[in-house]
Design a protein around this nucleic acid. Structure first.
Lengths: 333, 333
DNA sequence: GGTGACGCTGGAACCGTTTCCACGCTCGGT
DNA sequence: ACCGAGCGTGGAAACGGTTCCAGCGTCACC
């Protein structure tokens, strides 16, 4: 395995010159540059990214921090992120952070140990202390599905999305509308909170009262949503429509409806949020957010930060859109 | 950011001793060890993995090479892989290799540039040359959904799986059974090949002739399967059942059936392969392979290789199982 | 023709670890 | 009391890059 010194000797130059050629520094005579290039090809030399990283004090790869890798929406975001980086020859370190402990250690390791060139964080709001350490370490940071002042971030208006979803049901003539959402557990931004708020706001604006029993919350997941749905459907006055905080939970809602023999949307309308990849197959009406595109956009943003500094931090709002499929409709007469 | 030298000074020892403490070498006096530990805590010292990597000639992270990150089955495998590594504090570098060019460069980079502690390759068969370079670089290698002699690998019996799927249809009384599969395109192991062979074998054993038109092959994907299905259903003697090489393609088959107003399974039975996460929601009958578990098992295997050398390479066969859901049944009478 | 500026270059220092070698000390055996 | 073995330790060298500084030409200009 040839080193930079071998190349320097072969080309009859110093190591500094080879390094300058490798990094496209302007101060190299064209003839020398050509000679070095030739020596590199001849020897099949490839610079060691390990040595480069130590010398620079930072690696060239980017780190991506995600909570709940198993969740469908996170997976779709990653599909936008990984290829975008790979296409530019950027290595990607992927870290799954589910517990509070993993989260602490992950941020710690990023700053002290692995020192990536850039950091992409999904659905996690770094604490002020974490932000400060990242800033001090001069690691460019981009947030997806989370926002902190002074940072680049890509988010959607969860409140408006939920509001639109609820409005869609109201427009269909529903008034007994329930909400099935997840509570914060472990790491991860609580997008369920603004979604619940959007639901409430829509109902209030429409002048429709929401019984407190109509708001059911539990852990994230299909299974959990199934139970919450049974609970709300067992009420003396069950709802005719349900807004789920996420598509994954909407799948649980559908399963509950199915197991009770309820017709969807005849007996019960269901709308989710996110438009994960199974949604079209199940015919689930939902609020689409550009998951894959959000990942790709964030990755491009981070690469811009790595290439040329500058550009003041900005929050980018991505569009949401109600997608009507087969699980929402008027109540059967 | 304190270095090992700072720790050495604080503890009144040499850097070598600190390094020995860090790496749990036995040759350190307990008292000294304690003193060094204390200094480490006091200073909040964290070793630089960058420097460590250079000194060792290899990084501590593992690299995972995957083709077609967007495909559902690969995603599920990753869900088994990433958390398994993360739980042991192992960084994971993820590389998406779709084109032949990316593939070459990825293997090249692994050996020459990034030099991970271990390599996990999904659905790709390294060439003999690549194998040789990896062996020379002494990088432990584990294969998933691909097998090469002399390497640890985790595979399923694709042929037997397809055979069982076909047998299931035969048992239901079908005899006009078609096959919709994908052809090799870009990088990735052609598991469609043994699956097609399994289909043919089952039919031959049953003594049922298969018209050549009944075997349709095209690019991988739902869209492609949709067109292939239309083609086979346009035949004068259309099939009453279709074996799809993958669940993703089965989804295309279902879509085609749906758009023609065919009842499933009344007019057309459909069975897929893989049991991807949407399969249960669509009610797709399929051949289940333990996708997530295969990833986790491979990751554990690689970690074993990293911890303690030894254990001769072995091919591990994971079980497959026909899962009957709602898309297969007898032909409507 | 002398001088200053500047482009290009070589090489040393440095990044923060690991590892190897050598040395001192202790202790058991003779 | 002496000697050798061996444990515990310090420190230098090495890993392979980057960067900075100094020096050498060359050239323009006076």
């Amino acid at each position: 395995m040839p080193t930079i010194l071998d190349v320097a000797r072969a080309a009859g130059v110093g190591v500094g010159t080879v390094s300058r050629v490798l990094n496209d520094h302007p101060r190299v005579a064209p003839a020398t540059r050509a000679r070095v290039r030739e020596a590199i090809d001849q020897l099949g030399y490839r610079p060691s990214s390990l040595a480069r990283a130590l010398s620079l004090g930072k690696s060239t790869s980017v780190t991506v921090l995600v909570p709940g890798l198993t969740s469908a929406s996170v997976g779709m975001r990653l599909r936008g992120i990984i290829p975008t980086f790979n296409e530019s020859d950027r290595d990607v370190q992927l870290s799954n952070v589910d517990t509070e402990d993993q989260r602490t250690r992950a941020f710690e390791a990023v700053v002290t140990s692995s020192r990536p060139a850039g950091l992409l964080v999904i659905s996690i709001e770094p604490t002020a202390a974490e932000m400060e350490r990242i800033r001090a370490a001069e690691i460019p940071l981009v947030l997806v599905d989370a926002a902190v002042a002074g940072t680049h971030s890509f988010v959607i208006d969860n409140r408006a999305g939920a509001r639109a979803a609820t409005q869609h049901l109201l427009d269909l003539g529903h008034s007994r509308i329930a909400f099935v959402g997840d509570v914060v557990s472990g790491v991860g931004v609580a997008s369920a909170l603004p979604r619940k708020a959007g639901f409430k706001a829509a109902m209030q604006t429409a002048g429709v009262a929401v019984p407190s029993d109509y708001i059911q919350e539990g852990p994230f997941g299909r299974e959990s949503a199934l139970q919450l749905t049974h609970r709300v459907l067992d009420l003396p006055q069950p709802p005719t429509a349900i807004v789920a905080a996420t598509d994954t939970m909407a799948l649980g809602v559908l399963e509950a409806a199915h197991s009770r023999g309820l017709a969807v949307p005849g007996d019960l309308s269901v709308i989710g949020f996110d438009d994960i990849d199974v949604a079209p197959y199940v015919g689930l009406s939902t609020v689409r957010q550009p998951l894959e595109e959000s990942g790709a956009a964030a990755a491009r943003c981070l690469m811009g930060l790595l290439a040329a500094e500058g550009s003041e931090p900005a929050h980018t709002f991505l569009p949401v859109e109600v997608v009507v499929r087969a699980t929402t409709g008027p109540t059967r007469v």
